[in-house]
Amino acid sequence: MASNRGDGATPGVAWWKSSYSGGEGDCVEVVRLASRAVGVRDSKRALGPHLDVPVEGWRAFILGAQSHNFEPVQRR
């Protein structure tokens, strides 16, 4: 289960985003945390909150994305 941490920037960690990210600002950044979790945040709000996702959950998400196991988002 992911938890929302509203503590702003996490000191002492290096956030990164995928080289596949475009320049439109619709990116997320991730970081490996010492608590066996992956931090995920909106790149436009670097000082805002982030989600802590367990490593196993992040791994399952990445594998699902690589396998195209998600349905397309229907935009309204």
Rank of each mutant, 00 (worst) to 15 (best):
S43D: 04
L63K: 04
S18R: 05
P72G: 08
E56R: 12
C27G: 07
W16P: 00
S19E: 09
V40D: 00
I62E: 15
E56C: 05
A65H: 06
A46L: 11
S35A: 12
A65N: 01
R41G: 10
S67N: 13
P11L: 06
A46Q: 12
G48E: 10
S19F: 07
A46N: 09
E29L: 07
L51V: 11
P54R: 03
V30H: 01
V13A: 11
G23R: 09
S19M: 06
Y20C: 01
H50D: 01
A60F: 06
A34W: 00
S35C: 04
V28F: 01
G25W: 07
W16F: 15
G48R: 03
V40P: 00
V73I: 14
F61Q: 12
V53T: 06
L33W: 10
E29N: 08
D26M: 11
G22N: 13
N69D: 15
V28N: 00
I62Y: 09
T10I: 14
V73F: 12
W58Q: 09
R41V: 11
Q66V: 02
I62F: 08
V30F: 08
V40K: 00
Y20A: 09
A37P: 00
A37F: 07
Y20L: 10
S67T: 03
G23M: 02
V30K: 00
R41E: 04
A46R: 14
A46C: 07
R36G: 05
E24R: 13
N69H: 14
G57D: 15
R41L: 13
L51C: 09
S19D: 06
F70N: 10
V28I: 11
E24W: 04
P54M: 03
D26A: 14
L63Q: 09
A14V: 15
H50T: 06
R32Y: 05
R45H: 13
A60D: 13
E29I: 07
D52Q: 13
T10S: 03
W16I: 11
G57I: 04
V55S: 10
R45P: 01
R32I: 07
Q66F: 03
G22H: 07
V53N: 02
G12E: 03
A65V: 14
V30N: 01
S19P: 03
T10A: 04
E71D: 15
G64V: 08
T10C: 04
F61G: 13
A34T: 01
A37H: 08
R41F: 02
E24V: 01
L51E: 09
S18N: 04
E29W: 06
V38Y: 00
R45K: 11
T10R: 03
A46P: 12
S67P: 00
P54A: 03
Y20G: 01
C27Y: 12
Y20P: 00
L33T: 10
N69L: 12
F61M: 14
R36I: 01
L51D: 06
R32K: 06
A46S: 14
L51W: 13
P72L: 08
V31F: 05
T10H: 06
V13L: 12
D52R: 12
P72D: 07
A60R: 12
R41N: 12
Q66N: 11
